[in-house]
Design a protein around this nucleic acid. Structure first.
Lengths: 198, 198
DNA sequence: CCTACCGATCGGTAGG
DNA sequence: CCTACCGATCGGTAGG
């Protein structure tokens, strides 16, 4: 059981396969990655993978489910905390960027490859994504209701704007860049909350 | 020559193929779409496509090149116009959303599927994307230099935040929604330029 | 635009 | 984890 959840933690062959899948699914996409690509990346022959995994799709299911879980776990507590909506939104944005920085390739899989889940696994993933989006809807609603956020923003558009900026971060964020993930998060929060206009 | 450029304009078999490719590449991804899928969507047998196209990748090349061209054509004039940086940025955001709304599936291909271009076509696409990003860098630089934008924003992060929000729009924008594309663009510009804080 | 087909690669398995 | 292999599907072509 110890190594059956959460890639990047642990070091068994199963973990190596999951890490290879994160890298390749992130870079080439799920449909652009063959089982042979995965085997080459891991350093075994294609058939050998099936001693550790059930199917190619099972890898995607696990990466996406675990990935969404990481985002929800990091962000949800802030969404429903006691602070002001402004403090909460700032903390959520920082937490999101920090999770992306842990592993941008996993995040690419979470945000882009979930479409390729089969019909037994797709509904659960969509539901979890909606829980995540709900965190941002909630805090924007609260901010407007409390008069702390602008009364004339369109809440739906504001949430999509924020989520878009956040969901795009794995495309450019470098975990080893000059700015720490936290600093990047703070700067994004600043831009999204106060705007670029002086 | 009349129907050799710009899908969605014209109505020959070649246009039908390009429109099918936009839909399917956008929905299933380039690598997740087979030539047989395209043929089925168009209503011919797989081999018949090759009377009109050179290869599957040639379709991607054309959709991506034409797509980026549409964004640059719509946005670049505003980036380098005589107006204030604030007016220019607002106009750029509106123009971007309007181009997305013309055909969200094409926009998905432009923003996500360009990675699958072969090494002869990739550099040109990356260059054109950089021209596009350069429009936003320019206007943010001008805004800060003229004291119209906040002096303490991180310009790089601000540009990525704006571009992320814009690049994510094809995921949710509905051209037939309650708000017109222009209204959505104005609201996004408002959120990005003034922030959500009151 | 169809018929008929090509070699290559796909995800996955049996047996050791 | 390897050897050896399966049927299915892949992008693409020749000839009409």
């Amino acid at each position: 059981m110890a190594e059956e959840h959460g890639p990047e933690t642990g070091s068994g062959p199963r973990t190596a396969i999951l890490n290879a899948a994160m890298r390749l699914f992130g870079k080439q996409g799920y449909t652009g990655t063959s089982v042979r690509d995965l085997a080459t990346e891991v350093g075994v022959l294609p058939g050998s993978l099936y001693a550790h995994i059930q199917s190619k799709e099972a890898l995607l299911v696990e990466i996406v489910a675990d990935g969404i879980h990481r985002f929800i776990t990091a962000v949800e507590p802030h969404a429903y905390s006691a602070g002001s909506p402004a403090e909460r939104l700032r903390a959520m944005i920082v937490a999101h960027v920090e999770v992306v920085a842990e592993n941008p390739e996993r995040s690419l899989v979470v945000f882009h490859q979930w479409r390729f889940l089969g019909e037994e696994n797709l509904p659960a993933a969509i539901e979890r994504r909606q829980v995540y989006e709900g965190c941002f809807i909630k805090v924007v609603e609260d901010g407007v209701a409390q008069g702390l956020f602008k009364q004339d923003i369109n809440q739906r558009i504001a949430v999509f704007t924020i989520l878009g900026a956040l969901n795009w971060t794995p495309e450019w964020l470098s975990p080893s860049g000059r700015l720490s993930p936290r600093e990047v998060g703070v700067l994004m929060a600043e831009t999204l909350m106060r705007g670029v206009l002086a």
